[in-house]
Nucleic acid binder design. Structure first.
Length: 443
DNA sequence: TCTGGGGTCCTAGTGCGT
DNA sequence: TCTGACGCACTAGGACCC
């Protein structure tokens, strides 16, 4: 899908069609998740700091992501892909590999792809781009070249001609660090990777990375399309608007994250053996600490206690900007966690408490003062007004919130009204359906 | 400019049992 | 009983992806 989050916002909000739209975290440490093509013209791109994006493109609409509706639309698109082939490998909400050979569709693959693009547009109002090739590597590169709203086919025999002149960063697995390694060795293009030879790449990058990169540069990629990839870990993390320096607050946040993580584990019907705590300090240095339990668990108390213990062993005196809690080593079942319980009993007796008695470490930590919530209403959020109907939050501040009343089916921008933030007639709402609406900006 | 959130994979070091 | 080799599990960090 082309500029997916931003395209959904433009399709949902007629007043934003053809205008620069940036979706991402709106806090002081937010980054851009997706920028519309109108915003990209100004140099705004994914993963850029929001503050930087605002300087480059001050007139764009800055919105929080609405994952609920993105997921709904993603489900519609994935269902259309499933009509083409039973073998689909989703990469994210807006991207998937489809193995056409696994399907029984008659006809030219190019025609299949064009029909699929038309079906996606009819069903969602959004544009999709397709890369058609004999391997995942080439299909991915072709789909990038096809954006926005296009189709690129890599004909057999033309693979090297396509790959050779491309910069090394085009290849899957080459990020800033690997690109810098290669640059120091005088390797800038895919052709130069192929020419360097496998032994040289293994020497530069290690065995696994060097070998796979050399094969890819030669156009050799026989990775299969794999449906239903198994999840290997579940984690949650939060970056704080200002660094945490108070240990009690750190503990409180670790508890909160451990709870969220355990809820997600349970929601997925999984349990795991290894609890991981991630701590990013004031200077952006990142530490992880992990502990492997004797049996898988999805018990919030066990995850919380382990995470707390791991976090407390780390020096956080300089300040903490991010905390995370994760569980890996996942199993499909939950065992009675007898070992953890036994360990808990032992700790209690060592602390001089009767088993079952609450220890100091278990005492509920008083929540620290809530950081001031700048907005009860977040830009982009869906709302319903008792009198004016459905709309979305355009902005808020100094006790006021500005709503634009429009729905996806409107042909032009809706009217704008401002209310008190606590106006009882105003409430949050579900996103209105998008289905079949003509797309705005071509992605 | 100053760097999110949720993941995967790889590598290297270490401890432990055989 | 000691020692080295080996394989495995675990831990931590880094790089990468969307």
């Amino acid at each position: 899908m082309d500029a997916f989050f931003a395209a959904v916002e433009q399709a949902s909000k007629p007043s934003l069609r053809g205008k620069p739209v940036v979706v991402g975290g709106l806090g002081p440490r937010g980054v851009v998740a997706t920028a519309s093509y109108e915003a990209r013209v100004h140099g705004v791109h994914s993963a850029m700091a929001m503050a930087h994006a605002r300087r480059l493109c001050p007139n764009a609409a800055y919105l929080v992501p609405r994952f609920g509706i993105y997921r709904q639309i993603s489900d519609i698109v994935m269902a259309l892909l499933a009509e083409v082939s039973p073998l689909i490998e989703p990469l994210s909400l807006d991207e998937a590999f489809v193995d056409l050979e696994a399907g029984d569709l008659a006809g030219d693959p190019r025609a299949v792809a064009e029909r699929l693009r038309a079906d996606i547009r009819a069903a969602t109002g959004l544009t999709a781009s397709v890369g058609l090739a004999g391997s995942k590597l080439l299909a991915k590169i072709a789909s990038e070249q096809a954006k926005p709203d296009g189709l690129v086919v890599v004909e057999p025999g033309t693979e090297r001609a396509l790959l050779d002149p491309l910069p090394v960063r085009t290849l899957w697995g080459v990020g800033p660090a690997t690109a810098e390694h290669l640059r120091r060795a005088g390797i800038l293009t895919v052709a130069e990777i192929a020419q360097a030879g496998e032994p040289e790449l293994v020497r530069l990058l290690g065995k696994a990375h060097g070998s796979s990169l050399h094969a890819m540069a030669a156009g050799l990629d026989n990775r299969p399309v794999v449906a239903d990839r198994d999840v290997k870990s579940i984690s949650v993390e939060d970056t704080f608007d200002t660094d945490l320096t108070d240990r009690a607050r750190v503990r409180f946040e670790i508890d909160r994250l451990a709870d969220r993580c355990a809820q997600r584990l349970r929601g997925a019907g999984r349990s795991g053996r290894t609890v991981v705590v991630k701590i990013r300090r004031y200077d952006f240095s990142t530490l992880t600490r992990s502990e492997t339990l004797r049996a898988p668990t999805d018990d919030p108390a066990v995850v919380k206690e382990t995470a707390r213990r791991l976090a407390e062993a780390v020096d956080t005196t300089g300040g903490v900007r991010l905390l995370g809690v994760g569980v890996s080593g996942l199993a499909d079942f939950t065992q009675e966690d007898l070992f953890a319980q036994a360990a808990q009993t032992l700790r209690e007796s060592e602390a001089g408490a009767e088993p079952g008695q609450v220890t100091p470490a278990e005492l509920p930590v008083a929540p620290p003062p809530e950081p001031e919530r700048a907005n009860r209403w977040l830009p982009g959020q869906d709302v319903e007004h008792a009198e004016h109907g459905a709309g979305w939050v355009q902005g808020s501040g100094v006790g006021r919130v500005t709503i634009r009343f429009e729905v996806p089916s409107d042909s032009g921008p809706g009217r704008v009204r401002t209310f008190a933030v606590d106006d009882p007639a105003l409430s949050r709402a579900e996103p209105p359906a998008l289905t079949g609406h003509p797309s705005p900006a071509g992605g």
